[in-house]
Design a protein around this nucleic acid. Sequence first.
DNA 1: TGTTGATCTTCCAGTAACTGGAAGGATTAG
DNA 2: CTAATCCTTCCAGTTACTGGAAGATCAACA
Lengths: 130, 130
Amino acid sequence: MNIGAASRRSALPAKTIRYYEEIGLLRPARAENGYRDYCDADIHRLKFLQRARGLGFSVEECRQLLSLYGDSHRASADVKALAATKLDQIEHKIAELRSLKKTLTHLVKTCHGDARPDCPILDELSGASA
Amino acid sequence: MNIGAASRRSALPAKTIRYYEEIGLLRPARAENGYRDYCDADIHRLKFLQRARGLGFSVEECRQLLSLYGDSHRASADVKALAATKLDQIEHKIAELRSLKKTLTHLVKTCHGDARPDCPILDELSGASA
DNA sequence: TGTTGATCTTCCAGTAACTGGAAGGATTAG
DNA sequence: CTAATCCTTCCAGTTACTGGAAGATCAACA
């Protein structure tokens, strides 16, 4: 299977697939014409990457997950720990964004938003109230 | 004022301050010895940048905000629009992270997390349930 | 005066995770 | 046969810094 088909099946851009190969996440075979040739296991791996990246795992974390996945002796505890850590990070990020949203919402509300030159948002940013 | 002091006053690393200068966000004077010399307006600008970045504005958005800030004829509506757009983006990001959190929470809960080799997290990622 | 040690300078390179584009070979459809 | 599409490699750019090397300058102390 060529890279175009692999791209469609994995929902990953061809560029990204080549990039993943470059950084050693997979090693597809080569056809006689030099084209990459993806087998079912490769597609499986690519889909795995697509899902894990979509869940917010970094590429390095994906590499770990893939090695755990490939290791039939690994404990599910290892994977669970990785996922739990990621969950903490996500919660932290959500909290940060909420606080940010609160501040900005306040600013947008108090800004009259017309043609007058005074603006509470810029005042806040410039430290007028600090 | 040297870059070290400017760094302490603005809560920005010296490296970052030099970087901001490099990309044209400010132009501090130079002392005779070649050292950068920051005046109060520069510090003000740096603090502005520090706050705006912390609120999630990109460097380019900060550049816009700074030019609006410097323009006494600008309408507060311009700033409000920028902030409102940013608010939308933040809300979108929060929604994404929540959905992500939901999926991962489910996976972590269903994973027994012991030494057994089967693991619902990897199953899900590998597409076993898809 | 000498000499540390901290601070400053510039420049080069690297990070994450791709993305875009150029130049050129292979394949497929009509 | 030709045109369009797909494939290859390689180089460069993105965002917003961060790290480090090599060398100048400064402040403080004996």
